[in-house]
Amino acid sequence: MINWGGLRALYIKEVMRFFKVQLQTVWAPASSALLLLLVFSIAFGSEGRVVMGVDFPSFAAPGLIAMTIMQAAFQNASFSLLVGKIQGTIVDYLMPPLSPGELLAALAGAAITRAMLVGLVLWGAIALWPGIRANPAHPLAALWFALMGAGFLSFLGILTSIWAEKFDHNATIMNFVVQPLSLLSGTFYSIEGLHGVFRSISHGNPFSTPFQASATASLA
């Protein structure tokens, strides 16, 4: 028997947690990603550089959206239980009659919601960008990869917040695991263009699946 009322209440509470500071949690990541796209487009796009058969900004856009979605999911999820531990409000998560599955669904659901909102804002902004093809060739596949990418990092974030004892632990995973893996996963280049061992390593990077697949789903 699922406690739908409790699940809904915790989900809404978690959504309110990030929505209260939406400038920082939704608009800021989208704005940073747009700046990255702008800088890289100026650096590479003006030379007429073509990657995988499309101009550079159109190639980088889907991967950039995937990267932003995944980082937003991780940030939201990795703060959830950790804030409770540090502020001593963890009992608010543990005392209510919620099963581990319901707790997990509400936490992951809210993180995925934030990630998808950030992705939507970014996608909307990119759609207005002159000369970029923002409509994915396979919309359902693109949506699936966005949801799965967000889910992946939400669960990783929840695991991090369960394990972490201070914000430093959480930041370590963000800065030394999530950031490098996401930046080196082929957002700004095609993995097929790499040589030998680097290409094999990149194919083994779990973060590259959502990026490469989103690019494929959007551009193919």
Binding site: M52, H138, S190, T209, T216, A217, L219
Partner: peptide
């Protein structure tokens, strides 16, 4: 021009 297989990525 694809550099990954969608079906493999989905699974």
């Amino acid at each position: 021009m694809t550099d990954s297989n969608i079906a493999v990525g989905v699974v």
